Amino acid sequence: MTDRMTTRWWLIRHAPVPNPLGLIHGSGDPDADTGDRATAMALAAILPEDAVWLTSPLRRTRQTAQMLRPSVDPLTEPALAEQDFGRWEGLSHDEIAARQPEEAERFWRDPARNAPPGGESFAAVMERVADALRRWTGEEAGGDRIAVIHGGSIRASLALALDLTPGAALRLRVDHWSLTRLDCHAGTSWSVGGVNLRPGTFSGGGR
């Protein structure tokens, strides 16, 4: 049984977004492809029943949450949104390099700390996500929080738990439909129970 002062975070990256052209969809709002029912059912089977559900404001997270638990009405947390790529939203990396070579070169000198034009840096994402996790953990210590969010916001969450630099956090792989488990003990210290866990590798259960 989990200590009542331990808050368990179940971080799920949303279902994939069809993107044959490789366009950047950070703060963009395309639909997710939630058709992989077997994967969704395998993930849903290990999630706790009595939990607070959160999504970002973007529809791909809410669509994924509703696939996992049709009866759920998740709360929306804007601070858990994906990185905003500003004027690069909807473009491919090749288009950016061709149209804005100087801005692209500047960004890639330090992609964790530099912001795309009109957007935000990953370091800024880390700050807002950390604030959100602390706030939702502090609202009522203990219990489960299921957050269906994004690769960037999950990396930012791991950066908080592991004291990672922005550059180190960007190296983490976070697949669609994957589960990352964090525990916050007494509202101050963090432990990591698993990163990028895929259906078929889950152990234990929340039900």
Results as ranks from 00 to 15, higher is better:
residue 194 G to Y: 00
residue 42 A to Q: 09
residue 193 G to V: 04
residue 4 R to W: 14
residue 35 G to S: 14
residue 49 E to D: 15
residue 10 W to R: 06
residue 166 P to V: 03
residue 140 E to I: 14
residue 62 R to H: 12
residue 146 I to R: 04
residue 6 T to F: 05
residue 51 A to Q: 06
residue 144 D to R: 04
residue 42 A to E: 05
residue 3 D to R: 13
residue 82 E to W: 04
residue 166 P to Y: 00
residue 180 T to W: 00
residue 91 L to R: 07
residue 58 L to A: 11
residue 152 G to A: 07
residue 72 V to I: 12
residue 65 A to V: 05
residue 130 A to I: 07
residue 16 P to I: 03
residue 104 A to E: 14
residue 185 H to T: 13
residue 164 L to I: 09
residue 195 V to R: 02
residue 176 H to D: 14
residue 101 P to T: 10
residue 65 A to L: 02
residue 177 W to G: 04
residue 96 I to G: 00
residue 46 I to L: 05
residue 189 S to Q: 12
residue 176 H to P: 15
residue 170 L to R: 11
residue 172 L to E: 05
residue 92 S to W: 00
residue 179 L to S: 01
residue 162 L to V: 06
residue 48 P to K: 11
residue 27 S to Y: 07
residue 80 L to P: 01
residue 47 L to P: 06
residue 56 S to G: 04
residue 7 T to H: 06
residue 57 P to T: 08
residue 15 A to M: 03
residue 38 A to Y: 02
residue 138 G to F: 08
residue 75 L to E: 12
residue 137 T to H: 03
residue 17 V to T: 10
residue 122 F to W: 01
residue 207 R to W: 15
residue 198 R to G: 01
residue 89 E to G: 08
residue 197 L to V: 14
residue 3 D to Y: 10
residue 142 G to H: 00
residue 205 G to H: 10
residue 201 T to N: 12
residue 77 E to Y: 05
residue 155 R to H: 03
residue 4 R to H: 13
residue 1 M to H: 14
residue 22 G to C: 02
residue 69 R to N: 13
residue 9 W to I: 03
residue 182 L to K: 03
residue 123 A to F: 05
residue 180 T to F: 00
residue 136 W to Q: 13
residue 79 A to D: 15
residue 91 L to K: 09
residue 49 E to T: 15
residue 105 E to R: 12
residue 172 L to P: 04
residue 191 S to Q: 13
residue 13 R to Y: 03
residue 11 L to W: 05
residue 140 E to A: 15
residue 106 R to Q: 11
residue 191 S to I: 02
residue 35 G to V: 04
residue 15 A to N: 10
residue 122 F to E: 02
